[in-house]
Simulated assay, not measured.
Amino acid sequence: MQSRDNTPGQNHQEPTYLPVPFPKAPPKEPRFAALRAWWETAWEEDGILHNMWQDVLSAPDAGLRHMALWLRAVLMVAGVSFAVLMARAAGEVVLQALHQLLTAVPKVQVGVDTSSGVAAVVDQPVRTYIAQHSAGLPVDGSTVYTLWLLTGIVGLVLGYVTRNNGVRAMWTAWGTATEQHPRSACPFRD
């Protein structure tokens, strides 16, 4: 067996399968050099970022009417977005409160005489009617009764506060629809 040592006196031949060295590539410019160059020119005296920063700094003195249009647009979009988010949150709170009101744990007993005096004249026939006609509905009779009460209260309060004839007409229609039909049985009629 022949030794592969590099000792003088032996006839040693270089293997032909070694890779050929490639010339080195010229050095690349830094990765973010173009971005850094743009950044520096944008912050120069008449650069875009310098001018925008000057618009922001002069906005409190200029007021809303004379500030830069782009800054006014940004403020308006931010304000409208905030108003939409607040309206959505308020709507969720109102809907959750209405859901709790309509699905309250102590259910209103529909069809049972729980009122007395003058309130019973209107209340008891409505409870009886709702008890008789809410059997096939997807909501409970107590929910229908609560909605009936809520409609009357809202119509009365809004009609008084807003002095709007449409809301007053709604409350009048609510009262008229509540009035008992003459042929139906009323415990207070002879």
Rank of each mutant, 00 (worst) to 15 (best):
M1G: 14
S3L: 04
R4G: 15
R4C: 13
D5K: 11
T7N: 06
T7G: 12
E14G: 12
E14P: 11
T16L: 01
P19K: 01
V20H: 11
V20D: 13
K24Y: 08
K24N: 13
P27A: 04
E29A: 14
E29M: 13
P30R: 03
P30D: 04
R31E: 14
F32W: 07
F32V: 11
A33M: 08
A34E: 13
L35G: 15
A37W: 06
A37P: 10
A37G: 09
W38V: 12
W38F: 13
D46E: 09
H50S: 11
H50N: 15
N51M: 03
Q54R: 14
Q54K: 03
V56I: 13
V56F: 03
L57G: 07
P60C: 07
R65W: 07
H66S: 14
M67T: 09
L69A: 12
W70R: 06
R72I: 04
V74Q: 05
V74H: 04
L75Y: 04
L75K: 10
L75S: 12
A78K: 07
A78G: 11
V80I: 14
S81M: 03
S81W: 04
F82Y: 13
F82W: 02
A83P: 02
G91W: 00
E92F: 05
E92M: 06
L95G: 11
Q96M: 04
A97N: 05
H99P: 07
H99D: 13
L101M: 06
L102V: 08
T103S: 01
T103A: 04
A104G: 02
A104C: 06
V105I: 12
Q109F: 01
S115H: 06
S116Y: 02
G117L: 00
V118K: 05
A119S: 13
D123T: 11
Q124A: 11
P125R: 06
P125Y: 00
R127F: 06
T128G: 09
A131Q: 00
A135L: 08
L137G: 04
S142D: 06
T143R: 00
Y145E: 07
W148N: 12
L149R: 14
L149G: 15
T151E: 08
T151K: 07
G152M: 01
G152V: 02
I153K: 04
V154D: 00
L156G: 02
V157P: 00
V157G: 06
V157Q: 00
V157Y: 02
Y160G: 15
V161H: 01
N164I: 05
N164A: 02
N165C: 07
M170D: 12
W171V: 14
W171R: 10
W174E: 03
T176D: 12
T176V: 15
T176R: 06
E179I: 09
P182G: 01
R183K: 15
R183I: 15
R183A: 14
S184L: 09
A185N: 14
A185F: 10
D190Q: 00
